[in-house]
């Protein structure tokens, strides 16, 4: 019978916490969640808020997450934290910006090329590079 549950908290840019715990408290989308060992499998989105971890030695640690996903398996809790505040309208704005950037790039694109033409040009450039490389090698001897 296990009395602890493994907890992994990570964000896309860093590992935040990893260890055994007796209790994990987090703010799920539908309210506060307390997860003890042998909890039923659960998966939920997290709201911005703190995550409390009571480690196996009784030590209490607190982390702040700005959202993410919490997954519970019988013996392991995984929290995939977001790296920044995320909201639908913020994402929408970012998408719009990406589109605008592309349009701005297209506005002054210069002469156009076919796929075939571009392929040929690239092949030529690469061949030149290779030729230089070969020349360099033969010169060495």
């Amino acid at each position: 019978m296990t009395h602890t549950i493994r907890v992994d908290i990570v964000s896309a840019e860093a590992e935040i916490y990893s260890g055994e715990a007796t209790l994990v408290v987090a703010t799920g989308e539908l309210g506060e969640l307390g997860i003890a060992p042998r909890h039923a499998p659960l998966i939920t989105r997290l709201k911005p808020g703190h995550v409390d971890v009571v480690a196996a030695n009784g030590e209490r640690q607190q982390f702040y997450v700005s959202g993410g996903i919490l997954e519970v398996q019988p013996q392991v809790v995984t929290i995939l934290a977001d790296t920044a505040a995320r909201a639908a309208d913020l994402d929408e704005a970012a998408a719009l910006k990406a589109k605008e950037e592309a349009e701005a790039a297209l506005a002054n694109r210069g002469p156009q090329m076919d796929v075939a033409e571009a392929q040929a040009k690239l092949a030529e450039a690469l061949a030149q590079l290779q030729a230089l490389e070969r020349m360099r090698k033969t010169l060495k001897h």
């Binding site: 950037e101 694109r109 076919d114």
Partner: peptide, 12 residues
């Protein structure tokens, strides 16, 4: 952006 027949739909 210079390739014909290819749409650039977003960039970063």
């Amino acid at each position: 952006r210079r390739i014909k027949g290819v749409n650039l739909i977003g960039s970063a």
